[in-house]
Design a protein around this nucleic acid. Structure first.
Lengths: 192, 192
DNA sequence: AACGCAACTTAACCTGGATTAAGAAATATA
DNA sequence: TATATTTCTTAATCCAGGTTAAGTTGCGTT
């Protein structure tokens, strides 16, 4: 159960005083399963680092349907403020899908982080990796069938399939639970 | 027609000697319309900064169909090496859809860039913005109809609609040119 | 144990967008 | 200017996945 500072080896890039200041902006806390951390429309959304458990971010469309944008198991960072941009309707909710231990980076922390002239390489590298995941997801959504996307999900996140309910997997894949059920039946029978 | 170094104010973060070294790794060149810069499967894909014109990156599926991942008009950076990662089947092609003036960052440049312990804030900020665009695109692909995605595209990239052929817009939206044609007809008639 | 509810499945039917094929309009090449 | 080639449109048909509705199955509560 490593902390954000450990996970990204951020200490190595800072003077002890700076490190101290950063750490003072990080609050550790426990959240219960189902607890909502961030509601759509809240300003200055916080950022969360998951030490234990699993969070998710999702949007809700006009019909009330949830669309899961990402799962954040141990070691992941999750936030909604990536959407603070021109033409930005799609804001996100964040909640805990398991009882979790998290670190919360508040507004001051983010401001301080954003003011520093350079960004530690490991943080940047993490972002590049995340981008690759998003890129891949877009290409899959554009060119692959629901079956192919499901198989890709299973291969990419083998542990998640055991940890989250099917309806959430369906929501992540962009299909209905009924359609996922049909696909799983197909796989269980011959059609692999 | 600003260069990469200017656009990101990178000079401000470096010593003159470092700046000199960086600049020596950047090659400016002109590419003709239709010229392919990077083929799927090529190792150590280069990164391109567009000074003038427009590039695009795209994948090609088993049926030979192209899926445009992004357009890169003036001021954009485009590369395929975001996919140099675990489980990475979907590599991209890059070509010029207009005659363009570009800067090419070669392998050595990227290596040098990747070795530095910190990343200039403006580069990081650009990446965060790009992430927001990708996030938005994923949510749209999951929850919006083709008509809604087309309208969103027009709002987000008003100039692109005039610059690229329809079939490329269709490819970017994840639909066929026929379907886009139908949508446009609908918009031209009453159904706004 | 019995209830209540949410998660999952099944099945019938519907629809948005794909496919196929053909023609019209625009662009390039001679 | 004529001709070839690519782009765009129209229309007919098809199908993956959505919608609706009715079961099951599983599980937490009292």
């Amino acid at each position: 159960m490593r902390s954000f500072i450990d996970e990204f080896a951020i200490g190595a890039f800072l003077l002890p005083a700076e490190l101290e200041m950063l750490q003072s902006g990080i609050i550790s806390k426990h959240v219960a399963k189902g607890q909502v951390l961030l509601k759509k429309g809240e300003l200055y959304g916080k950022t969360y680092f998951v030490k234990q458990g699993c969070l998710r971010s999702y949007s809700v469309d006009e019909k009330g349907k949830e669309h899961i944008f990402m799962f954040a198991p141990e070691g992941w960072i999750i936030s909604a403020n990536e959407s603070l941009l021109p033409n930005t309707p799609a804001e996100l909710y964040i909640d805990a899908i398991e009882a979790s231990e998290i670190e919360v980076f508040d507004r001051e922390f983010m401001a301080r982080f954003e003011e520093s002239p350079t960004v530690p390489r490991p943080v940047f590298a993490k972002l590049v990796k995340r981008m690759a995941v998003l890129q891949r997801r877009i290409i899959m959504l554009m060119s692959a069938t629901a079956l192919e996307r499901y198989q890709d999900f299973l291969a990419t996140y083998p542990e998640m399939a055991q940890r989250v309910p099917q309806k959430m997997i369906a929501s992540y894949l962009g299909i209905t639970p009924e359609a996922l059920s049909k696909i799983r039946r197909g796989l269980a029978k011959g059609h692999h």
